[in-house]
């Protein structure tokens, strides 16, 4: 009766080998482009839960980037703390072997001094998306911005707004909106997109602050109704919805939502530049372009490493001044 044991052990060994190959051996890739610096997988950390906008853009881009650089680009979701948790995860990996998605809201927490990492710990790789946000309500609650504003004035501090996280850009825009409308809202942070949407659908909150493109199916089905777009000019397809500039919110507060990739500041510049050009190729692909259109991303979404770094520095200054104005800076 030795045979079965040997067989069982062989099966176990084979299973171990299979696991080892699938989990760590995927980087064995024979057709690497010439001059490639990449010989290990490069993690792409999404600092928010699966199923949201940041997750969608990361998963759409990771395939194409992976083809270009010749190694795997596994997407890992690490949500929490308006993106801090995921960015810290990226920073704790070897520099140049991990990148993460950076969005406006996470940058805002850095500017506010509330993030668990510093601005100079990260380095821009590329911007993938720039897109408009909106305040939206559940169907059959408030017909338009006017009704919502009236209700908010009648119950100051009572209406709940689901946001992506504490001290995010959502909070800045909300503060500006409160000032113009002469009332107060209550921002409730939900780091998981699914929790945010369920909160509006189930009546846990009254308003949702979200990018239009991320909740397109609820907009198309009529479950969510946008009442105010966060934009300088009317948004295509939602021309009849008033924008923040229509109600008198200064242009400097209208911070576009963006999503880009960043690496540790210690990552070699060569790696960053190659990754940046892989991003460009990804953003030029037909499949990615179709995805961008679906989520209302603007035409000038892509920025290379240098442009994105400058953009981030400008936004950081702008957000800092906004935070100071609305008294939201950490002590």
């Amino acid at each position: 009766m030795r045979a079965p044991h040997v067989r069982t052990r062989r099966v176990l060994a084979a299973a171990a080998a299979t696991l080892f190959l699938t989990s760590t051996g995927c980087q064995v890739n024979t057709h690497q482009p010439a001059g490639a610096q990449f010989n290990r997988p490069v993690d792409l950390v999404v600092p928010f839960g699966p199923g949201g906008g940041a997750d969608a853009v990361a998963r759409s881009a990771s395939n194409i980037i992976s083809e270009r650089i010749g190694v795997d680009v596994p997407v890992i979701n690490v949500d929490g703390a308006t993106g801090s948790s995921g960015t810290v995860r990226m920073l704790s990996a070897n520099a140049g072997q991990s990148m993460s998605v950076l969005i406006q809201d996470t940058l805002a927490t850095v500017s506010a001094g509330r993030a668990s990492f510093q601005f100079d710990e990260i380095k821009a790789v590329c911007r993938l998306q720039s897109m408009p946000s909106a305040l939206m309500v559940r169907k059959d609650t408030y017909a338009n911005w006017q009704e919502l504003a009236d209700a908010a004035r009648a119950n100051p501090g009572k209406l709940k707004v689901a946001t992506v996280g504490a001290s995010s850009v959502d909070d800045i825009v909300l503060a500006a909106t409160e000032e113009v409308a002469g009332t107060r809202f209550r921002a409730v942070p939900f780091s998981e997109p699914s929790e945010r949407y369920a909160a509006l659908l189930g009546g846990q909150v009254d308003v949702l602050y979200e990018q239009l493109g991320d909740v397109r199916e609820y907009l198309d089905s009529g479950d969510f109704v946008p009442v105010l777009t966060v934009a300088d000019e009317p948004v295509d397809g939602y021309a009849d919805v008033p924008s923040t500039s229509d109600i008198g919110i200064p242009e400097s507060v209208v911070l576009p939502q963006f999503r880009g990739l960043v690496m540790s500041a210690d990552a070699p510049q060569e790696i960053v530049d190659q990754m940046s050009s892989a991003c460009r190729q990804a953003s030029e692909s037909r499949k990615f372009a179709a995805f961008q259109e679906e989520v209302y991303a603007t035409d000038d979404s892509y920025q290379n490493a240098a442009e994105f770094q400058r953009f981030l520095e400008d936004q950081d200054k702008l957000i800092t001044s906004q935070l100071r104005e609305y008294d939201m800076l950490a002590d």
Binding site: S92, S116, A166
Partner: peptide
């Protein structure tokens, strides 16, 4: 990293613990 406000707790300055 705490999940809502992002405060770093008990990391004692060690990157792995952060």
């Amino acid at each position: 990293v705490e999940a809502v406000y992002g405060t770093v707790r008990f990391d004692f300055g060690i990157p792995i613990l952060r």
